[in-house]
Design a protein around this nucleic acid. Structure first.
Lengths: 259, 259
DNA sequence: GGAATAGTGTCTGTTAGACAGTATTGG
DNA sequence: CCAATACTGTCTAACAGACACTATTCC
C-alpha cells in the first residue's frame, strides 16, 4: 500500500491503524577514565573507555543492566529527548551528543511495540563519577566497553546497540576530531595518541608526532598553543621533558578512498 | 523522569502516555541517468544524479512533490518497512538500501505526531524509468537533485531529508565503494571517474587512473578483469581505444585523519 | 587526419616507515 | 645516573601533482 493511499484511507483523526506504544531514546554514555600508573617518574595515565549503565529494577529484564533512556514526548524532537535525558542523568549540559540509529525489531521489548532511538554521548569522567555516588535512587555502573559487551547480560537489545555505538565511536575517532571531547582544551601529542589508542586499539603510528606536526596534508587539524608573547606553551604534567601543547582547530579534512 | 520510573508508572497495558500517530519510512531513491552526448566519435555519456518523487494528491501538501514512503507495521522493523516500500515502488528487490536518520521535529506533519525515518536507496536507471511510465495511479517524477533542492516545493520536511541524503551519499561515495551500485559488474576507470564526479562534483584527480592502478596503498579496492585464459578484458564501448575493465573487490580501506 | 578516450614518461617535491639517536628533567 | 617522555636525524622507497607525450581506433 502506498503512503498516499494509506494516508488517504486513514484520514486525519481516526486511529485506524495500530501505532507504537512508545518511542524512547536510549543513550550510550561513553567516558574515558584515567588512572595513574605507579612509575618511578612522571608518566602518562592509562585510559579506559567506559560506558554508564543502570540496573533495572522492574519487569522486563529486572536486575539486568541497561542503557539509560526515556520516552519521547510529543512536543520534542528525539534529539531533544536525548538531550533532556542526558541532562537528567548527568546533571550536565553541553556534552557531545550524536544520533546512532533506530532499533525496531519486532519483539525487542516485551511490553509492546516500542521503537528505540539510540544516541551516544561523550561525557567527562568527573560527571559520571559524581553521578555514580550521588544517586541512591538507582544503581549506576561504569564498565569498560569490553566488560559490558562480553560479561554483562544487558537488557533488551542493548548489547547490539552498545556494539554498534562502539564501532561508530571508533570510526568517528579516526574520521573526525571528536578526540577533543576527551581532552582538555590544551593537550600534548602524547595525550592525544593515548586517547586515540584507547578508543581504537588497532591504531598504531610509529611516527605519530612527526606526521601530525610536519606533513602539509594534515596541517590545520592541530595548532600549537602559544602565550600572549608568542612563546610556545609547554606542559610537563606527564613527562620530565616538557612537551608542546596543542589544540584542535575547526578544520576536519575530507577523506577519500580514491585519492 | 527516568526511563525506569516512566516504565513503572506506565505499567504494561495501560496507555497512560500519548504515543505517536504513525511511524513512516521515507525513501530517497537515487539513480544515475546516462545520456549519450552527440560527438563525432564514441564518447562517455554524461551522468545526472536524480531522485524519484511522487506528487501528493491529498491533504496535507496536496499537489506538492514528496518522497515515496509508507507507514511501518507492528510486525516489521523499520528497515523491513523501507525494503517493502522500495519493492512496492520499484517492483525490484535487492537495491542498495541504507538508513539515513530520524525526523521528529514537532509540527513536521500537520496530521499529528508522526516520526519519519529516512532511508536512501540506489536504484538502477531502468527500474525508475519503467516505474515512471507504467504507473498511472500516481504521478511520478525523476528530478536532478539540484532541481529538486532548488526549484521544487517539497512536502513536509522532505527538502531537509533530501539535503541530508545528498550529503550522505557524497560522503559514502568517497568513503566506501557504493560507486559499484551505479556501475555494471565490469567497468572502465573512465566510467568510475564519471560516476564519482557526478555524485561529488568537487572530486578532481588529474592522475586518477595512475593512482588507482599503481599505488600500493589503494591496491585491493579494484582488480583487473581477465578472461578464462588470463588475458585482460577490454571494452571499447565508450572509446576508440579499448580500455581495461575492472571490478570492485570486497575490500574497503579504513580511512583516518591522523595517518 | 581528427576526435575522443586511454593510457605512459618524466620530473620535483613530499610523505611513509623504520629505527637510531639526542633532549629534558624529576627523582 | 635512571627512567620516562619528547622529540630529531637519516635513509629508502613510495606517492602526489603537474604536464607533456604516446597509443588506439573509428569516423
Amino acid at each position: 500500500m502506498s503512503k498516499e493511499q494509506e494516508m488517504d484511507s486513514r484520514g486525519n483523526e481516526g486511529k485506524k491503524y495500530r501505532t507504537p506504544d512508545g518511542i524512547p531514546a536510549d543513550i550510550v554514555m561513553f567516558t574515558l577514565t584515567r588512572q595513574e600508573r605507579k612509575a618511578s617518574t612522571k608518566s602518562l595515565p592509562r585510559f579506559d573507555l567506559k560506558v554508564m549503565l543502570i540496573r533495572r529494577r522492574s519487569w522486563p529484564f529486572a536486575g539486568a543492566w541497561a542503557l539509560p533512556g526515556g520516552f519521547s514526548q510529543e512536543d520534542e524532537s528525539l534529539f531533544e529527548t536525548a538531550r533532556r535525558e542526558l541532562k537528567e542523568e548527568t546533571g550536565v549540559d553541553g556534552s557531545h551528543l550524536e544520533y546512532l540509529g533506530v532499533y525496531s525489531k519486532p519483539g525487542r521489548d516485551p511490553r509492546g511495540w516500542i521503537i528505540s532511538h539510540a544516541f551516544f554521548a561523550l561525557v567527562e569522567e568527573w560527571v559520571l563519577e559524581k553521578r555514580q555516588s550521588a544517586d541512591d535512587a538507582q544503581e549506576v555502573g561504569l564498565f569498560t566497553v569490553k566488560e559490558a559487551l562480553e560479561e554483562l547480560d544487558l537488557a533488551f537489545d542493548h548489547r547490539e546497540i552498545l556494539a554498534d555505538a562502539y564501532l561508530r565511536i571508533q570510526q568517528q575517532m579516526l574520521h573526525t576530531t571528536i578526540a577533543k571531547q576527551f581532552l582538555p582544551p590544551h593537550f600534548t601529542l602524547g595525550e592525544l595518541y593515548q586517547v586515540i589508542q584507547t578508543v581504537v586499539p588497532d591504531f598504531a603510528e610509529l611516527n605519530f608526532i612527526r606526521k601530525i606536526t610536519s606533513t602539509r596534508s594534515r596541517q590545520g587539524i592541530l595548532e600549537e598553543v602559544r602565550d600572549e608573547n608568542g612563546k610556545p606553551m609547554l606542559s610537563n604534567q606527564y613527562s620530565q621533558r616538557p612537551a608542546q601543547l596543542y589544540r584542535f582547530t575547526d578544520f576536519t579534512p575530507q577523506l577519500s578512498i580514491y585519492t
